[in-house]
Design a protein around this nucleic acid. Structure first.
Lengths: 195, 195
DNA sequence: CTTTGCAATGAACGGGTGTTCAGATAATTT
DNA sequence: AAATTATCTGAACACCCGTTCATTGCAAAG
């Protein structure tokens, strides 16, 4: 090999991903053309195919990248002892992490149906791994008698749904700061599981 | 006028809407072509334009129709006295109504970004009207001292998000029936507002 | 039974789609 | 300095897009 692999790619590939994230989040996967992405990067269409196999792979890379990062960050975040404290830590982590990456989150939740079946399955596996973090906390809380909650799985889906919804309406310039919302959600979610 | 307006339209127009709902929900507005819709109805593309001005209007009609029906049904549903009972009635109504129309719900929540700004504003107004139904209940409960909830608006968005999420994962053949889920959600939501 | 007029056809319009590829470019290793 | 090779260009491919419109068909009104 005569050149370090990706000497240029190291600059262009991330820019393609960044442009795709912005455009997919703004207009939707199906409504964005490869030419639009290329235009945003300042390159011709054909050049994109040096960095991604096709449009579908680009979408998959964005989603898998986002979910992998999410899981890694979730692992890094410390989870305190005790079901109530662990639940609160999860909620705060989720809200903060997702608020910082609205575009990736939007794509990961809205473009699932534009994945091929195999790619959908791969993404769902990652998503399920994240949900399982919360489900474990709920299960432990139920087992310890700390939570009054009939079903850990449904509780997980309900809480994730509640949290995910924030991204659809939260605006930094709104009436309440993110810290305010974090506090309100912590209270509501703690109460929702009967703790 | 030589003929009752819409003697044919009375058959074709609803079929177009039904096909569009199915296809938009399955593949997304941008990914569905007018030719696909026409094919599903068993008609040529041009015929669609006898019943809708353009693709964008078709989307708007579906969304406005869904939200108008939702508001009408919500008004018809009786709301019992007392904040706790009213909240439970709202939750049960929402879950049942939405479970019966998964495709319309999916479109109304996922295709907002494919609306032109004016059309988006119209749909948001209707959606806000529905959210206000819940917000009033929460406000009344807080005022009466029946709920322990810091902010009625955030509580509304949190609960709506929680409820709306059901449609993304509920399957009739799943582990739990809709009635089971209804019961679990009623408990969680009642607890979440501190009642 | 003729008139009326809505609805459906089928072809066309201009333009956009994802993807490929031969050839030019430029940067790194030898 | 020369050779190498990842990257980019620019054009092309075959096909699909939303929308329009002259023409045709047909069901109801008079």
């Amino acid at each position: 090999m005569a050149r370090t692999s990706g000497s240029h790619a190291a600059k262009t590939a991330p820019r393609i991903r960044a442009a795709a994230i912005r455009l997919f989040a703004r207009h939707g996967y199906a409504a964005v053309s490869m030419r639009q992405i290329a235009g945003e990067v300042g390159v011709q269409v054909g050049a994109l195919y040096n960095h991604t196999a096709d449009k579908q792979s680009l979408l998959l890379e964005l989603m898998e990248g986002h979910l992998t990062d999410l899981l890694a960050a979730c692992d890094r975040a410390d989870s305190p002892d005790g079901p109530v404290a662990a639940l609160e830590a999860f909620v705060r982590f989720h809200i903060r992490y997702h608020a910082e990456r609205p575009d990736e989150v939007f794509i990961a939740y809205m473009e699932l149906r534009n994945l091929t079946p195999e790619n959908f399955a791969r993404v769902q596996t990652l998503r399920r791994r994240y949900e399982d973090r919360l489900e474990s906390i709920l299960r432990a809380g139920i087992a310890a008698g700390a939570f009054r909650l009939a079903d850990a799985r449904i509780g997980t889906l309900a809480i994730i749904g509640m949290l995910t919804g924030i991204n659809t309406w939260f605006r930094a310039k709104g009436r309440l700061s993110l810290a305010d919302i974090e506090a309100i959600y912590c209270d509501m979610i703690r109460q929702s599981v009967g703790a």
